[in-house]
Design a protein around this nucleic acid. Structure first.
Length: 1099
RNA sequence: GCCCAGAUGGCGGAACUGGUAGACGCGUCAGACUCAAAAUCUGGUAUUCGCAAGGAUGUGCAGGUUCGAUUCCUGUUCUGGGCACCA
């Protein structure tokens, strides 16, 4: 009886299906284990050998866990929305739903071939309305929530509205600092409003404000717009500024877009990484993506240009925030300077109070000696409009009282409340004073901001200061502030136009236009230094130094404030920039700075830096931040590199947004109206102005008028991006048929987190961050009971394609072999790897491959045509894909599974090579022969095993179990081979040994294991057999053959008892002839003996 | 440019915690069986010097730490993945 794998595999796959052996229950007395694969995008090319690598690994682990007694959830589905299906539809006129369904069928057949243990009852498809109903539903939860920074979690927008109604937004500032509430009836646009402000706003304004808080929100963002194709392009589709298809120019265009406010979760996404069993590399990538940095935001005022002589310059250009070139009036500067002096010389009481209330100790920002409308107040809590005054000594009590009253009255008119303490009160019982302040703050929060007509205070400047334009820069190195030599703005910074002097206007505009034509990646990758002076100067707040303001593409608008203070002596890029443009460099590192390289070492002491001279980075940074906060010229700031996630696409094949627009307000659909199904279209052309194709379907997009809503309702015509459906699919598998919830809470409580997630590193920052965020939102809102989706993550490597090339002599039909290609003008052509044996082309197969090559002529070398090779991504267009079906039909699923594992560690990327598959196939045949031989028939027996056989068995149990646990599947396969080789060698055919080997083998080669298991007389399925238990006694050794090295070089081997002492070992070693020879009669310096490892004689 | 990973015989890889470098498999060479082939089996196979015994060299490259380094450290080269609209 020979190993007829085709028959066996077909038979058992049918039996397993009939008996529904892979069906998983949501309740079980066994412990649960959830093994998940990253589900595939069902591309038209079908499954290639790279796909199953991770699937086989997870299948092995799932089966292994099942043998170990777990209730294992191991599902599969399809990430079925996406660009390629739509592009296919544009090119071939086949509807994405049709081509996707067809592709899924192919994938399914291919997956079934390999014999996975998926519970297919739980399959999900993201493009199925029953599925995306819940994607839309979760989107609505995001839309209807905001992130409460006080409680640190997502909460319902209803609650936010209640807060606004009762206290305005003083305690919950707008997340986006750039946002200004334009409807505020005030000379000063602001981010802060009171409860009465809120109540006075019209619905449009209220909704616009709420939009600034929603976790899913609408804003404006730039897209790649290709006028010629009339469509928005993915970054992928843009190459060097032109479209991949057709090579048409691509420009940036601003469009209304949906976003997810993932930045609010930055901190939690960062800190919760600690709880995950992911590789350090993966955590590091996410950490770097989130990019948390702490530093300072520093306010640089723009230097006023020299006062124009009368008549020399026309009217100064007024700006929106007041008149730009006009000074604010002399009194303001005098007051501010006066305040500054006061701060430098505080009274003891002031100082004590300041130390106790500074820096958010009250939860409210406090400024001291702050100028407001002609007065300097001692402490100003501008956010909540509370002033704390500390009275000096009473020279004239009566007069002081009158003065205080008038001052109080005056400030009250500006909506400011006052509390007052005496010096004595502060000095005698500071705690009582703090207590009173806290009470006042609470009261103020409850009742404050009642005077809606009064212009709002701008937190950063106070009243009276509006006219001076400022640039805020973000820096992670505030300690280097004395080394600032210039400032650089991102070319798209909003102030650029305003500050550029007329002489430089044209140069700046040209430079900005150049930068706009470049992608962000090109800008970052650019080695050449470029930039442009604006003609403006900014004042370093710390030393009053005026520095030139430049623009350059190396400063990105999206990061920090889009502006940097450049410190050439302390930053590599700033240094190169200064050298390139000959900007004088201030050295703040003394002798450490040699003039040719910036000093980025953080252990260097600062020089030439006023009050931080002599300090090191950390301490100096603290002092500078303190100084900036004291003087109101900046503040401590935590910054993230991560940006909010763009969540809309101008495409057809994605989830429609359950949103209806009316008069510029987004209204969510009711839950009962979900799913909002994707309408059928016949054309995939984009809508006018770059909107998605849905905009063309007026019958769908424009909602018919009715009496209740007479006009103006229009559906959102963008669709959701690919990662929408994949951000939560692991939850749907738990409860895939539930029509009342995305997943029943009881069920998600049972299955809980994914215990093992296997997928590629290419998802390190996209999918893996988004699904973490969605999980956290669902957790915050109480829909699930865990806040991380994937407990353990294993990254499978990429199987690359090994491409083959032929070389056609240009303009002919002649092909030259690899060795002679240098002698001709040639075109390199990808050739199908399946018609190349190694590097030798099958010439006949090539002629038959495509009609155009039918009459091909060849110039051979040594009678062969040798192809060129290159390792590339596996893709249909490169003709380097290998179809697993071919291998399965030739060698069987068990061989294929084991070979994929045998290739190397799952985590490692490697090019595919089919060559070695024979070896694995031979191994399975050899295994079979332990049971049955062709001529003899059954050879297995029921004899009792010998100690040596048990040793082989138990060594294998240990090795395979350990290797499976640590995902070292390639070495486990090797252990099986060793076991079978050894058993063959000693002629062991005993059921007692072989049966156990079969159970160990089940996860790897389930078909042959099940078949032989039954042939041994078992009637139950091996899938639920008991995993063999390792017993150390069978493998125990009493002695070991030690390698003996002389001076670290192995010279001989000596067998020594394991319980020998150092003394005994030394005696044995020194008595050895070879050791004696190498010692040449000398005494060894020392003998290193590591038990069970090695011996080293040092001379 | 930035972030992450990798580099070991002709090839895929092994060496798990700093302790015999090359397990296992492919390929290849020699042999057995055979009219022959396939299949199967046996033996050799890092490079190099040597008839052999034995020696030297060797884990991308250059250094360092250590009795001992594929493993740790510093620098460097190349390859792969990602860099926000491919999935």
């Amino acid at each position: 009886m020979e190993y007829n794998f085709r028959e066996i595999e077909k038979y058992w796959q049918d039996v397993w299906q009939k008996n529904q052996v892979y069906k998983v229950n949501n309740d079980s007395s066994k412990p649960k284990y959830y093994v998940l694969d990253m589900f595939p995008y069902p591309s038209g090319a079908g499954l290639h050998v790279g796909h199953p690598l991770g699937y086989i690994a997870s299948d092995i682990f799932a089966r292994y866990k099942r043998l170990k007694g777990f209730n294992v959830l191991h599902p599969m589905g399809y990430d079925a929305f996406g660009l390629p299906a739509e592009q296919y539809a544009i090119d071939h006129g086949i509807h994405p739903a049709v081509s996707t369904a067809k592709n899924i069928d192919t994938f399914r057949k291919q997956l079934d071939n390999i014999g996975f243990c998926y519970d297919w009852d739980r399959e999900v498809r993201t493009c199925d309305p029953a599925y995306y109903k819940w994607t839309q539903w979760i989107f609505l939860q995001l839309f209807k929530s905001w992130y409460n920074r006080s409680s640190g979690k997502a909460e319902s927008i209803e609650r936010l509205i209640k807060i606004f109604e009762s206290e305005g937004n003083v305690n919950h500032p707008v997340p986006d600092q750039k946002f200004q509430i334009s409807s505020l009836n005030s000379a000063v646009k602001s981010q802060t409003f009171s409860s009465s402000d809120w109540l006075s706003f019209d619905e449009f304004t209220q909704q616009a404000i709420l939009m600034e808080y929603r976790l899913a929100y609408c804003g404006y963002g730039e897209v790649n717009w290709c006028e010629a194709l009339g469509t928005v392009l993915a970054n992928d589709e843009v190459i060097n500024g032109v479209s991949e298809r057709g090579g048409f120019p691509v420009v940036k265009k601003k469009l209304r877009q949906w976003y997810l406010r993932i930045t609010e979760y930055a901190d939690r996404l960062q800190s919760d990484l600690d709880s995950l069993a992911w590789s350090d590399a993966m955590k590091e990538m996410q950490t770097n993506w989130i990019g948390k940095s702490s530093g300072a935001e520093v306010v640089f005022k723009l230097a006023s240009p020299p006062a124009p002589l009368p008549g020399e310059r026309g009217e100064a250009k007024p700006s929106e925030s007041g008149s730009f070139y006009k000074t604010a009036g002399n009194s303001w500067h005098i007051l501010k300077e006066y305040g500054r002096q006061n701060r430098k010389n505080p009274t003891p009481a002031e100082n004590l109070l300041w130390q106790n209330i500074r820096n958010n100790k009250l939860g409210v920002k406090v400024r001291r000696q702050h100028a407001i409308q002609g007065y300097i107040v001692d402490f100003a809590l501008l956010e909540i409009r509370l002033i704390i005054e500390l009275d000096g000594e009473y020279h004239n009590e009566e007069q002081q009282k009158i003065y205080d009253e008038s001052r109080t009255k005056f400030l009250n008119e500006f909506g400011l409340n006052l509390i007052r303490f005496t010096n004595q009160e502060v000095l005698n019982d500071i705690n009582a004073v703090i207590k009173k302040i806290k009470v006042a703050i609470e009261e103020q929060k409850q009742t404050g901001n009642s005077n809606a007509d009064v212009p709002l205070l701008r937190e950063e400047k106070g009243l009276g200061d509006e006219a001076t334009p400022v640039v805020r820069v973000y820096t992670t190195r505030p300690d280097t502030i004395f080394g600032v030599d210039f400032m650089v703005l991102a070319p798209e910074h909003e102030l650029v136009e305003q500050i550029t002097t007329p002489e430089l206007k044209q140069t700046v505009e040209e430079y900005v236009a150049y930068v706009k034509s470049r992608s962000e990646r090109e800008r970052m990758a650019e080695k050449k230094i470029s930039g442009c002076f604006t003609g403006a100067y900014a004042v370093n707040p710390i030393n009053g130094q005026e520095v030139p303001v430049w623009i350059s593409e190396y400063v990105l608008a999206g990061y920090g404030t889009g502006a940097i203070m450049a410190v050439p002596s302390g930053d590599e890029r700033d240094h190169k920039f200064a050298k390139f443009f000959n900007i004088p460099i201030t050295n703040i590192f003394g002798d450490a700075y040699k003039g040719d390289e910036a000093i980025t070492d953080k252990n260097v002491t600062l020089h030439n830096s006023d009050f931080i001279t002599g300090l090191k980075v950390k301490e100096a940074a603290e002092k500078v931040i303190e100084w900036l906060e004291d003087y109101g010229d900046g503040e401590r700031k935590v910054n993230y590199k991560m940006r909010d996630a763009a969540f809309s696409r101008q495409r057809y094949w994605g989830e429609p947004f359950p949103i209806i627009w009316k008069d510029g307000i987004a209204y969510p659909l009711k839950e009962s109206e979900l799913p909002l199904e994707l309408p059928h279209v016949d054309s995939y052309k984009p809508g006018p102005e770059g909107e998605g194709p849905l905009a063309n379907i007026l019958s769908w997009a424009d909602i018919p008028s009715s009496d209740a809503d007479p006009t103006g309702l229009r559906r959102e015509t963008n669709t959701m991006p690919g990662y929408a459906g994949s951000s939560w699919y692991f939850l749907r598998y738990m409860d895939p048929h539930n029509d009342n919830a995305f997943c029943d809470r009881k069920v998600s409580d049972y299955w809980n987190q994914v215990d093992l997630y296997i997928g590629g590193t290419e998802h390190a920052v996209g999918h893996l961050l988004y699904s973490r965020m969605w999980t956290k939102v669902l957790y915050d809102l109480g829909h699930i009971g865990f806040n991380e989706p994937f407990k353990r993550l294993v990254n499978q490597g990429m199987i690359q394609g090994s491409s083959r090339f032929v070389y056609r002599v240009r303009g002919t039909n002649t092909f030259v072999s690899f060795g002679q290609k240098e002698q001709y003008e040639i075109d390199e052509i990808h050739v199908d790897v399946n018609i190349v044996d190694g590097v030798e082309l099958d010439i006949n197969a090539f002629r038959n491959w495509r009609p155009e090559f039918e009459k091909a002529e060849f110039i051979l070398e040594d009678g062969k045509y040798i192809c060129g090779t290159e390792v590339e991504k596996m893709s249909k267009s490169k003709f380097n894909t290998v179809n697993p079906d071919d291998l399965v039909s030739k060698y069987g699923a068990d061989t294929f599974r084991m070979y994929e594992m045998f290739l190397g560690p799952v985590e490692q990327s490697k090019p595919w090579d089919t060559k070695g598959i024979e070896g694995v196939h031979r191994f399975l045949k050899k295994l079979w022969r332990l049971f049955y031989e062709e001529d003899k028939g059954q050879v297995w027996t029921t004899e009792l095993p010998t100690p040596i056989e048990l040793k082989i068995l138990h060594r294998t149990i240990k090795k395979v179990e350990d290797d499976t646990e640590r995902f070292s599947f390639n070495t486990a396969v090797s252990a099986f081979m060793i076991a079978v080789n050894e058993l063959t060698e000693i002629g062991c055919h005993k059921k007692a040994v072989l049966e156990n080997i079969l159970v160990l083998l089940t996860p790897y080669a389930p078909h042959i294991a099940e078949d032989l298991w039954h042939k041994l007389g078992n009637s139950n399925s091996i899938l639920d057999a008991a995993y063999p238990v390792f017993e150390g006694k069978h493998v125990a050794e009493t002695s070991k053959t030690y390698p003996v090295a002389i001076n670290g070089k192995t010279r001989t081997e000596i067998s020594i008892d394991l319980d020998a002492t150092q003394q005994q070992v030394e005696t044995i070693v020194l008595a050895d002839d070879i050791v004696k020879k190498w010692l040449e009669g000398k005494q060894p310096k020392k003998i290193i003996y590591v038990k069970n490892r090695m011996i080293n004689v040092v001379m």
